[in-house]
């Protein structure tokens, strides 16, 4: 028996639907202030670890950062894999080292890195100064044979010797591997990229659009803020990859460092600052796009299947974490000139 409703005709229903939709669209997403408490703006500065003249150390560190003569082939510098003009990464799943070798893990961004609890995916270096010592001597990366070999290269250039003396005036032997890493670290501590997200956190509620704010709500609702939280949205804890669902990768992560069984598959949670610009993703660099990364994170870490709309919403928020690169600070300086004493490069390709 068909009942015809004369009051609610199709026209009325359509009008009501349109009015409802319009009402929903015009209402801005209200970000829950309580949720914002889990975040903080990027610090203005990161205090230096090394004592001594800051400007001189930054200046020296900048030269060393760009100097490929710190590698065996003299073609690889810190900047080769952590490209300052490209948000601190090289865009490759794993980076190309000496003689075309590849490492096991994706090169993380150097921007804001000094504020992390430790360096490398497995936290084996306590700070950026410690990290700087690693790749230079790593046979698959810059492949220098020893720290003495590095010092020999630096000592062969009077301009470097002078720069080290200026940066470490109290040292009897200023040109050392330790001081090299201190200078690079001091330079890296200045690599900060504040973004619109920071403006929003500091009180400018117009810094994020309604869609971006809705994306933030989605980010929290999905559970991403369990780990990607704080001033860096990450970088402040170790967590297991494959927390809820086993992750298919043999890399044991932090276990390599601590040899503690329960540290298997534990990695330092990466910071999401500049995430939209630092593809590919995860410790193995195997995920090419950010929406895939979001979906996989939800699957392996939260046991959730996010809809394309939810992923897209979160992605909209993550784009607000792209910060401003300090163009002046990262400008490539003129490097000290090689002399007859400077060791020659060893064939790398």
């Amino acid at each position: 028996m068909k009942v015809r409703n004369s009051v609610l005709g199709p026209g009325a229903v359509l009008t009501a639907t349109l009015l409802l939709a319009a009402g929903c669209a015009s209402k801005p997403a209200q970000v829950d202030d309580a949720k914002l408490k889990m975040f903080a703006p990027l610090p203005e500065t990161i205090p230096a670890k090394a004592a001594g003249p800051l400007e001189a150390q930054v200046s020296l560190g900048r030269m060393l950062y760009y100097d490929a003569r710190l590698s065996k082939s003299q073609t690889i510098s810190c900047n080769s894999c952590h490209d300052l003009a490209k948000y601190g990464v090289d865009g490759a799943p794993t980076s190309l080292g000496f003689k075309g070798q590849h490492g096991d893990r994706n090169s993380p961004t150097v921007y804001n890195a000094a504020a992390h609890i430790a360096q490398f995916w497995d936290g084996r270096a306590p700070d950026v100064e410690g990290q700087a010592k690693g790749p230079v001597l790593n046979p698959v990366e810059m492949a220098m044979s020893s720290d003495q070999a590095v010092v020999a290269v630096l000592e062969s250039m009077p301009e470097y010797v002078a720069a080290f003396q200026k940066a470490f005036p109290d040292d009897k032997k200023p040109v050392s591997y330790d001081n090299m890493s201190l200078a690079i670290g001091t330079f890296e501590r200045g690599l900060l990229t504040p973004s619109r997200w920071d403006k929003f956190l500091k009180g400018d509620k117009t810094a994020l659009t309604a869609e971006e704010q809705a994306g933030f709500q989605q980010f929290v609702a999905a559970g991403c803020s369990t780990c990607h939280v704080g001033a860096l949205l990450g970088g402040n804890l170790y967590q297991k990859i494959g927390l809820m669902k086993p992750y298919p990768d043999p890399d044991p992560g932090r276990y390599q460092v601590t040899k503690v069984e329960s540290d298997r598959m534990m990695f330092k949670v990466p910071s999401l600052r500049n995430v939209a610009k630092t593809a590919p993703y995860f410790h193995n660099g195997k995920v090419g796009s950010l929406d895939q990364a979001i979906a996989q994170m939800a699957e392996y870490q939260l046991d959730k299947q996010l809809s394309p709309a939810e992923v897209s919403s979160i992605l909209t928020f993550l784009n607000t974490l792209t910060g401003e690169i300090p163009a002046q600070y990262i400008q490539k300086p003129e490097l000290p000139k090689s002399t007859a004493k400077t060791p020659k490069p060893v064939e790398g390709d």
């Binding site: 992390h116 609890i117 402040n236 804890l237």
Partner: peptide, 10 residues
Amino acid sequence: NLYGPEMAQL
């Protein structure tokens, strides 16, 4: 031990 100081506070 897996939480840094910031995370521990949070």
